[in-house]
Structures are given as C-alpha cells and as structure tokens.
C-alpha cells in the first residue's frame, strides 16, 4: 500500500515540474516590461533598473526559474498588486469557503447521480432511460453562469425563498474564527442560527455547481452498471435467488463504480473551474471569486498563484482517486 502511494506520487512529479514550467513561461510572456509596470508611469529609468535588479529580472533565465521554484516551495507568492496583502494569506483565508462549496456540490452530484444512473441502467432503453440521457446532456451543455442567474431569478427574486448572494446574511454576525470553515466554526461556537443561515446561502451555489458533475456521474454509472449486468455472476446470483435490489446495490454497483470514481476525480478540475464562475455570480467569498477579481484587475501575482494551486490540487486529487480505486478494487494495488 505504502509502496503504491510512493510510486503514484513519483509519477506525479514530472507533471508538477511541467506545471511550474508552464506557469513560469506564462509570466515571462507578459508582453510589457514587468519592472516598468511595477514602478508605475512616473518612474525614472534608474528606478526601473533598480526594480529589475531587485526582482532578479536581469539574471539568466535558468537562474530566474530556480528562484521562482524556490519561492513557490516556500508558498511565497508575493503580494497582490490590488489589495497589497500577501497572496498566500488571502488564499488561506478563502480556501475553506471554496472547499465547503465544492464538497457540497460533489455530495449532491454523487448522492443524486449514482442512484439515477443505476435506475437508468435498469430501465435500459425505456422512457426513463431516454429522459435521463437527454437531461444529462442538458446538464453538460448548460452554461453555469446562465443557470445561476436563472436560479437567482426564480428562487431569490421572484419567490424570495433563498438569499441572492454571499455566504452569510449581512445582519448575521460571523462566529469566532477557529478553523476558518464557516459552518464548522458555527457548530463549535454553538451558533445554530449562523449555521442555518450559512446552509441557506450555500443551496443555490452548490446546486448550480453540482449540475455538470451530476450529469456525467449519471452517464458513467449507467454505462458501468450496464456493462456489469452482462457478467455471469449476475445470472448466478439471480439463479441462487438473491433479491434483485440486494444484487444490484451490493454486488453490481461495487463492480461498476470504478469508472465513476475516475470520473469524480476528473470532475474536481471541472468543479474548481466551475467555482470561478459560480462563486463570482453568487458573491461567494472563495478562491473562485478571488480569481475573477484578480483577472478583472489584472492582478498577475494572484492569477499565477491560483493557477498553480489549482494544478497542485488537481494532481493531489488524481492520486487520491487512484487510492480510492485501490480500496474499491484491491487487485489494482498490485499493478505497476
């Protein structure tokens, strides 16, 4: 098991190195002189030269790359050109909100998606299957930002059931910061009103974000179950008089979810990207809205840090996915 983890992490290293190169190249292709941009419009050539030296922009490109990697390893992403705060601490402050949102969205996608997928497979080529197939294509094809606006229009503006934006009502005081996770902090502080309010606020964003994932989980579960149902052990189980529900949910599902698990891992990247749009529409104070803010203000330091972070999270999730695979299907652990 440990060997498997080590091997898998080793496989991720070249990709992480590539990620560093890609982000480094991204910064270097900035068409304008970044030292001049930092110094401002009224800077003298001497000042620019000084800044160039300070930022190490006059050194050989390889050396610059090594310095860059060193800084990244120390989580030193510089400061935001916009807020003048450290990018690393900004990210640390906003990460819990994004993680909570992503987790809720994923939970919705999985708990709704897998049963629907199984259902579609069991009703293969009957009308529930057709309806679910069309709906799942719709789920992938819908523009998240538009769907978010439509949900706001219906549930917040017309019906007034759910809040329009933010993670907490303006009138609600924030519980004391312990973990940084708003809901967890509410529980620790015993602030049930704040917890309820936070839950109220997360429904629409989580629903919007879960849509794309929901659709692909339905599709992959359906395909997996259909494949597994053709196995001999299913006929055998039936002949032995197993109840259909026990056969499907205990044995068939376990043998068909490997593809779905891979898909859930892949979804993570999509969820982070989706969060960029969804968070900014619902004004949810996470990494996504931070990214959009950085993009609109041209805050390159922030953009770089976020891009890098997303890449690393993605790699980590891929490793985790393989581990879960191993737990579901122990045979995979022995394969190189």
């Amino acid at each position: 098991m440990l060997g498997f983890i080590a091997r898998r992490c080793g496989l991720a290293l070249p990709s992480l190195f590539g990620l560093l190169v890609v982000t480094f190249v991204l910064v270097r292709i900035v068409p304008h002189d970044s030292a001049a941009a930092m110094a401002g419009d009224a800077a003298t050539p001497e000042q620019i030269a000084k800044l160039t030296k300070e930022a190490g922009l006059d050194r050989p490109i390889i050396e610059q790359f090594v310095i860059y990697v060193g800084k990244v390893a120390r989580f030193d992403f510089g400061e935001s050109a916009f807020s003048r705060r450290s990018v690393a601490s900004d990210i640390k402050e906003r990460l819990p909100a994004t993680l909570t949102l992503t987790f809720c969205a994923l939970a919705i996608s999985i708990t709704v998606g897998i049963p629907l997928g199984v259902f579609a497979a069991l009703r293969h080529n009957e009308w529930p299957d057709y309806v679910l197939r069309i709906v799942s294509v719709l789920g992938v094809a819908v523009a998240a930002f538009w769907f978010a606006i439509m949900l706001q229009l219906l549930f917040s503006m017309q019906l007034g059931w759910l809040p329009l934006r933010g993670e907490l009502s303006a009138t609600m005081s924030r519980p004391e910061r312990v973990t940084g996770f708003l809901m967890l902090d509410s529980v620790i502080a015993g602030r049930w009103d704040a917890l309820g309010d936070a839950l109220h606020h997360i429904i629409l964003p989580a629903l919007t974000l879960s849509l794309g994932g929901l659709a692909s989980i339905v599709r992959f579960t359906r395909a997996g179950v259909l494949d597994t149902l053709q196995n001999d052990f299913v006929s055998y189980g039936r002949a032995m008089g197993y109840r259909r529900s026990r056969l499907v949910w205990r044995y068939v599902l376990r043998n068909s979810v490997t593809a779905t698990i891979t898909q859930i891992g892949l979804l993570f990247g999509g969820l982070i990207a989706g969060g960029v749009v969804v968070e900014s529409i619902y004004d949810y104070p996470g990494i996504g809205s931070y990214t959009v803010q950085a993009i609109l203000t041209g805050d390159n330091q922030v953009m770089l840090a976020v891009t890098l972070m997303v890449g690393v999270v993605y790699a980590a999730v891929n490793i985790l996915t393989d581990l879960v695979h191993g737990l579901v299907d122990p045979r995979l652990l022995d394969k190189p």
Binding site: L19, G274, G298, G311, Y314
Partner: peptide, 17 residues
C-alpha cells in the same frame, strides 16, 4: 502539465496576460 490545469482557469489567465 497543460491538461493538469482546468481549461477555463488557464484560458482566463492567458487571455488576461
């Protein structure tokens, strides 16, 4: 490496740069 970053995030960063 390019595939490791969600396309939307990378495209946004590039378009801005």
């Amino acid at each position: 490496a390019v595939l490791a970053i969600p396309q939307l995030v990378l495209a946004l960063a590039l378009a801005q740069l």
